[in-house]
Computed example of a mutant assay.
Amino acid sequence: MPLGTLDRRPPPLFREGPSALTKLAFCTALALFLMVADARFKLMDPARSALALVLHPLQRTLLGPVDAWEQLRSYLRGMEAAQAAEDRARQQLTEQAVVLNRAAQLQAENQRLRQLLTLREALTVAGQSAEVLYESGDAYSRRVVVDRGSKHGVQRGAPVVNEGGVLGQVTRVYTLSSEVTLLSDRDASIPVLNTRTQQRGVAFGGERGVMELRFTPADADIQVGDLLATSGMDGIYPSDLAVARVSEVERRGDSSFARVRLLPTSRPDSARHVLVLTPLAIHEATKAEAAAAAASEAQARLHARDRARDKARAAATAARPGASAAAGKASAPGGHKP
């Protein structure tokens, strides 16, 4: 084939068109034209609306995972916030429960102290308040330890009472504390008086906090619910202090004595604040000594007043002759007043 007949044009794939600069200038001009036309005449609004309508489902589909992730994060944050709020609420509820429990205890303690103050005003003997520290470690006795001792003037044998009645008696005295034997102790005893029938007796400690009224005749007039109080004849306990109530009366045909069980009115197991009283005999002796001292002082004042009156009379008698002589000179002839 002759060389002149060959096609020297490049294939379509490598065929050269407008230059890149020309294409850039054309596209820039077209963009500027479209921008100006859209800004002035809103030519692209229909196309933009149509394109937004077409792409909206695709956008919602693509945003689905993002929205789900955001909702999951919001749910987790809400769960954490709810758990934290629940923990704070539980903590506040616990604190308020503690405060409420403490307030209830203080209210009950305040009520007991008010009753003790009322009891102190009603008593005719001196006494001082004390607090029960703990129970004695002896498993075979019923004793408690209070926070008052010989330093505070507590004496052995002093009766101990609370708002319910007689609790027991001081049996050991230390410097800063004392040991009180409760009425329910097996070795404890106290003279009592039935407030309904005025019948006297002796109550003894028993088992499991129950007392007994021993040596009671089987035909004695005693009933369940009778209140037994102190008689005041033993020289220790003041009179008319509640001791116990009759809880059971058992009359047996083979015995001439009735078995009478009592429940202490002072509730020894729940005693917290008590009054330690001065024994009645010591109180009466102190009262008698005070009355004797007051009478002696009154008699001394009376003697001093009589002596002062006698001295005044003697001075007046001694002054009268001088006054008479002076009056005589003044009335004599030629006399003159100095």
Rank of each mutant, 00 (worst) to 15 (best):
R313A: 05
L275M: 07
K311Q: 15
T265R: 00
S266E: 00
R313F: 01
P268G: 03
S270Q: 03
A281K: 15
I282R: 14
F257E: 06
R261V: 03
A281F: 09
L262D: 03
D310N: 04
L277T: 01
K311M: 14
F257Y: 04
S256Q: 08
A298Q: 13
Q299S: 13
F257V: 12
A295T: 08
R305H: 14
E297V: 04
E297N: 05
T278N: 03
A315W: 09
R259L: 14
A288N: 15
A290D: 08
F257I: 09
A314F: 04
T278E: 02
D269I: 06
A298E: 07
E284C: 10
E289G: 09
H303F: 08
L263W: 00
D254N: 13
T278G: 03
A285T: 15
H273Y: 09
D269A: 13
H283V: 15
R307H: 15
V276H: 01
S256P: 05
V274W: 01
G253L: 15
R272W: 01
P279E: 00
E284S: 11
R252W: 14
R301D: 09
D310A: 15
A285Q: 11
R272E: 06
P268F: 02
Q299D: 13
V276I: 12
L275D: 01
L302M: 11
L262E: 02
A300F: 07
S266I: 02
P264M: 01
